[in-house]
Design a binder for these strands. Structure first.
Lengths: 198, 198
DNA sequence: CCTACCGATCGGTAGG
DNA sequence: CCTACCGATCGGTAGG
């Protein structure tokens, strides 16, 4: 039996390459503005060869986003398993989130996950919604233990405000001119934990 | 002399209609995924008629984003002119920003401005960058007077973190299930001004 | 994985 | 503002 180069769990180094390069282009230009020919030209294969590995262009996006979600969720679960003090846990969650959002090895997948949701297939959307709910629950627990998220007042989802502050950095944070993702992460954590430094 | 229906400063109710409906579709589906035919079908004209009013599809986007910027900047300038106490000024800036971001009469323009920057023409990008710098400066002044943004530590642009928290609400805030934009705005202002409510 | 190609759709134009 | 249409490009397929 010949080994299939298609399917999900295979070796597929070419497949990985298409995912990696596709993720980069999706992040830079957006899903709709990226063509199969953009991707295959960067990989160095004919445009038709894409479909030896993926059923459609959207399938590539789905998989890129799934991988982004896996990275982000696995990291948070690992942090929670360390059973740190709540304040240290929050600081670490913020740190890891910011790192995954900006490190070259992960940012393409995570940014696409966050900013290209609209283009995902319905199936991927549903699957990712469940994982995202789990991710949010981890943050909510952490914030609740710090009394930063209490059911009081108006049911404000503080963790989502925090996500916004962090995720938006993908739009403006520039490598040299701005503080590093890690420094910024610590400042955000400090702002939340110690309040405004008077 | 016949009056031209083209050009910028004209009456052009049809032109306005294309802008309004275009803005709505750009927000919902994104610029690339919206076709000229989507827009004209919703307006109720032939697809070719678009180009009596705009030179290109991108011109529509440019104008939509410009209008979004005008709304947001004019509102902030008006707030600053009222010369409120700094805390009240910040609260009002947040209120107005959230309203423009969620009110049906403005949100399409503002959300497109914020989330479709990538697709803008180079000229529009440059023009909007200048206006945005002005907008940011207003917020920075306000935050500085409250000692919420000090040049200390690591040059953290607090106003951009705040923008992220606010702008991200466009992705998750749902009319009925969640607090209203105004309630949320007040909570965010309270969180910043009074610190975490112990 | 390649070459050759197809049907559909897109932004935009022409001529009235 | 309409009708008719065009050239380009796109995602995807066929056959090897």
């Amino acid at each position: 039996m010949k080994k299939k180069s298609n399917g999900r769990g295979m070796q597929g180094s070419r497949r990985q390459e298409i995912l990696r390069i596709g993720a980069g282009l999706f992040r830079e230009k957006g899903f709709d503005a990226t063509t199969i020919r953009d991707i295959t030209a960067a990989v160095g294969i004919g445009s038709g060869s894409t479909f030896c590995h993926f059923r459609s262009k959207r399938d590539i996006l789905d998989e890129v986003a799934r991988h982004g979600m896996d990275l982000v969720l696995a990291e948070a679960e690992a942090v929670v398993r360390r059973a740190l003090a709540p304040a240290e846990q929050l600081r670490t969650l913020i740190q890891r989130h910011m790192t995954l959002l900006h490190d070259p090895s992960s940012r393409d997948f995570v940014v696409v996950l966050l900013f290209e949701q609209r283009a995902l297939s319905a199936a991927a959307k549903a699957q990712l919604a469940a994982s995202m709910a789990r991710y949010e629950a981890l943050w909510e627990d952490c914030l609740r233990r710090l009394n930063l998220s209490q059911k009081g007042r108006a049911d404000v989802p503080v963790h989502r405000l925090l996500f916004g502050a962090l995720n938006w950095t993908a739009h403006w944070l520039r490598p040299v001119a701005d503080p590093s993702p890690q420094v910024l992460a610590d400042e955000v954590a400090g702002l939340l934990l110690n309040g405004i430094p008077g």
